[in-house]
Amino acid sequence: MNDLPSSPYACLSATVISDLNVNGEGAPALQNNKLAGLIITYDASSRTGILIPAPLLTRFLADAQNPPYEGFASAGFTWAPLIDPAKRAYLGVPKDRDGRGILVLSCLPGTGARESLKPNDVILEWDGFPLDNMGFYEDPEYGRMQMSQLIKGRRKPGETVPVSLIRDGRPLNVNVRLCRWDDRQNLIPENFSGEPVPFLVDGGYVLMELTGRYLRAHGANWERVVDPRLTQKYLFERHLPETPGQHVVILAGVLPDPSNIGFHEIRNAIVTAVNRKPVANMDDVFAIVDGDGGLRRITLKSVGVDVVVDQDARQAVNARLAAQYRIPVLRYRRDTPPQK
């Protein structure tokens, strides 16, 4: 299982070496006059490429030709290797299971894992396959593989798999319902398709939901360029909303105007509340702003002073900035397409 190019998602793939100079991407690879897979990237300097195997392509095509598209299955939990002998003993893993088992860290809301698993569970077997302490198993077709292949490669959304685990020092068997985890359900969606992101421009303050696409727009070294708090949030928490529908709202920037002097340098700051009311996504922001008759106050994470919007000048500022920066619409919600 390798991450796809320009993507944080992994799928079954293989690294191939070729003496032929593959021109571009999407080149078919043949074995015994049959399609072995599709080369999706190629590095001419090392003459290596990443190949998506034919069985995976066949499954994708069959799924795409029979709507609705199901996609790949997700178990809905995060995990870590379990190597430390002291920690294994603390969790009650029997000594005869040495070298086996992974540790459940968290379960995503609205998934089968949240229904059946708990943090600190130690999974010994998944779908009948023993797992080692690094999360690998012996696949009958491909050999030693990570457990992700058991979920994405051998199962579909909606199916249920048996799981053997240790909970509170006791053996337990549970069933986990698999689902399709949509990117839009993440705390920080990737948004590779470039869909419009909900935003609000009010008083020159630009509020929006954070996406992976937005972070990568800062360049190849975006991790060192953007606010470290956003980097940490993306790298370690992007799959972990506390509640369904939760996203990270940020003050992306401030359009300069005499009414907001002193705040021009603020950008990419996490917003925790609007008008003194907590927000979990831009839907919350719109509901609060519409209910209060406008944006009045912005509370930023780790900042002791709120940003206060000049109410007397707000409407005039909006009209002035819309004309100055040629902004066709000052807000976009998911349920209302942006004006053209």
Rank of each mutant, 00 (worst) to 15 (best):
residue 211 T to F: 01
residue 212 G to R: 07
residue 213 R to V: 08
residue 213 R to F: 00
residue 213 R to Y: 00
residue 214 Y to T: 10
residue 215 L to H: 05
residue 216 R to W: 00
residue 217 A to G: 13
residue 217 A to T: 13
residue 220 A to S: 09
residue 220 A to W: 00
residue 220 A to G: 05
residue 220 A to K: 15
residue 221 N to V: 02
residue 223 E to H: 08
residue 224 R to W: 00
residue 224 R to N: 11
residue 224 R to G: 05
residue 225 V to K: 11
residue 226 V to Y: 01
residue 227 D to V: 07
residue 227 D to W: 00
residue 227 D to S: 14
residue 229 R to M: 04
residue 230 L to M: 13
residue 230 L to W: 01
residue 230 L to Y: 01
residue 230 L to D: 09
residue 231 T to R: 15
residue 232 Q to F: 00
residue 234 Y to I: 14
residue 234 Y to V: 14
residue 234 Y to M: 10
residue 234 Y to W: 04
residue 237 E to D: 15
residue 238 R to P: 02
residue 241 P to N: 08
residue 241 P to V: 14
residue 242 E to I: 15
residue 242 E to S: 10
residue 244 P to I: 12
residue 245 G to I: 11
residue 246 Q to H: 04
residue 246 Q to I: 15
residue 247 H to D: 05
residue 249 V to S: 09
residue 249 V to F: 00
residue 250 I to C: 08
residue 250 I to M: 07
residue 251 L to Y: 08
residue 252 A to E: 13
residue 254 V to M: 10
residue 254 V to H: 01
residue 255 L to E: 06
residue 255 L to Q: 09
residue 255 L to M: 12
residue 256 P to V: 10
residue 256 P to I: 12
residue 256 P to L: 08
residue 258 P to M: 09
residue 258 P to Q: 04
residue 259 S to D: 08
residue 263 F to Y: 03
residue 265 E to I: 11
residue 266 I to T: 13
residue 266 I to K: 11
residue 267 R to F: 00
residue 267 R to I: 10
residue 267 R to Y: 00
residue 268 N to R: 11
residue 270 I to S: 05
residue 270 I to T: 13
residue 270 I to W: 02
residue 271 V to Y: 01
residue 271 V to N: 03
residue 273 A to M: 06
residue 274 V to F: 00
residue 275 N to A: 05
residue 276 R to P: 02
residue 276 R to Y: 03
residue 276 R to K: 12
residue 276 R to L: 04
residue 277 K to L: 13
residue 277 K to M: 14
residue 278 P to A: 06
residue 279 V to P: 09
residue 281 N to D: 11
residue 282 M to P: 03
residue 282 M to V: 12
residue 283 D to I: 07
residue 284 D to A: 12
residue 285 V to Y: 02
residue 286 F to N: 05
residue 287 A to G: 04
residue 288 I to F: 02
residue 288 I to E: 05
residue 288 I to K: 10
residue 289 V to K: 05
residue 290 D to G: 12
residue 293 G to V: 14
residue 294 G to L: 04
residue 295 L to N: 07
residue 295 L to S: 05
residue 295 L to V: 05
residue 298 I to L: 11
residue 299 T to M: 06
residue 302 S to Y: 02
residue 302 S to D: 15
residue 303 V to Y: 07
